[in-house]
Design a protein around this nucleic acid. Sequence first.
RNA 1: GCGGGUGUAGCUCAGUUGGUUAGAGCGCCGGUUUGUGGUACCGGAGGUCGGGGGUUCAAGUCCCCUUACUCGCCCCA
Length: 415
Amino acid sequence: MKRNISLVKGTHDIHGAEMEKFEFIIEKFYSICRNFNFKSIQTPILEQQDLFSRTVGEQTDIVSKEMYSFLDKGEAYICLRPEATSSLARFAASNYQSGLLKLITHGPMFRRERPQKGRYRQFHQINIESIGEKSPYVDFELILIAKLLFDDLGIKENKHRLLINSLGSKEDQIKYAYELKKYLTEFKIQLSEISQSRLDKNPLRILDSKDPKDSEILVNAPKISEHLSEESKNYFNQVKKLLNDNKIKFFEDPKLVRGLDYYSHTAFEFQTNEDKRQNAILAGGRYDNLISMISSRDIPGVGWAAGIERLMDLISLKDEKSESDKKILFAVQDESYLNNNRILKQIYSLRYNHEVRVSKNIKKLFSYADKNNFSFILLIGEEEFKNKKIILKDLKNKNQKSFEISKFELKNEIR
RNA sequence: GCGGGUGUAGCUCAGUUGGUUAGAGCGCCGGUUUGUGGUACCGGAGGUCGGGGGUUCAAGUCCCCUUACUCGCCCCA
């Protein structure tokens, strides 16, 4: 016996009912975004490794240990993208002209983590980015779209919540990091091991720690909101005002720092309370310095990404039996009856949803039609073939009629 | 990288304190007198019990190793 080829760890096939959910999410996403004049784009899955080292950050887990990268024929370090924003920034760096570049995309992302529920090595995201202008309205618009998507997907208010924070400008962050480091250094020995190592490299990330010891210490830590410049504060207030004006509920979380290095100002995250572990389902923020990290241009932007698999876990599709109300099974008792068949040709040209099936056993043809939810069966058995006839049976109301093949017009019978 | 759980038929799983030829449901194939449907009944195919080693008269069952999957930690969407 041959050994089955198994899936690569952390990857999965999507089909059947799951695939319907997958497509449902993408369709809703694209349809909402088109109403806000976003344009879709597809970028390569393969990118230069350097793109992510420079944007996501060398110190992050994503780059330091989760990237699928390899030396391509001894020429260049290539990787499978772990996220899409950097790719879209790369695109914008060379294609942005003026105004707002509004982009949406979706596709597979790759991170070599230990797989578990809601977490895969190849997973899928939908992404949206508004690049070119720094304005509270642009930030708000993206959060609004996220909200509309949740509504359209039927994810109820009580199943998710929106957290927001402002990380301030680059200057604010430098000043705040200094203050935070000063405070945390006093407690250095009490901090978790990881947090201790972050103290020098990226103290802001410590705010994200879930270690109870760290949380205790962080209670009295300086807050970024207290270290924002007037300008940054005003900016954030305007975003919040727009959210309030539009009745979008949110919680301000001063400890929300995104795990990637390129964020500044507005940061947000939609969390679910259905799953305590993988609770982040949609996250993003403003990244005014991102494009300057990978090019000589300085263009502000904002965007978010959502995990399709995580969204799939939160939605349930009703059985949409209306899938096709006129699916036809074209059934014959002998393969040769299919040759030069004028009714099959009608099916092709009229684009009927159909399937062709051959079996000597008529009972099996009917039971196949039944099990697979066909609404009509077109049957040519031995007898019909001899007499140049065809049977049409409506499987819902069980009406059956016989026709001369030469005169049969499908469009008159099934509309 | 570190823990816990599980690997028995195509799928979902039983398999009792170790004890003859390893079971069920679903699915598949065939049949229940002639060519008509989710039902019922009958029959059939299909398994190196994840792999390796050990204990024993005897291992799917106990022990060790290994591997895969899975759920958590970390981190993230």
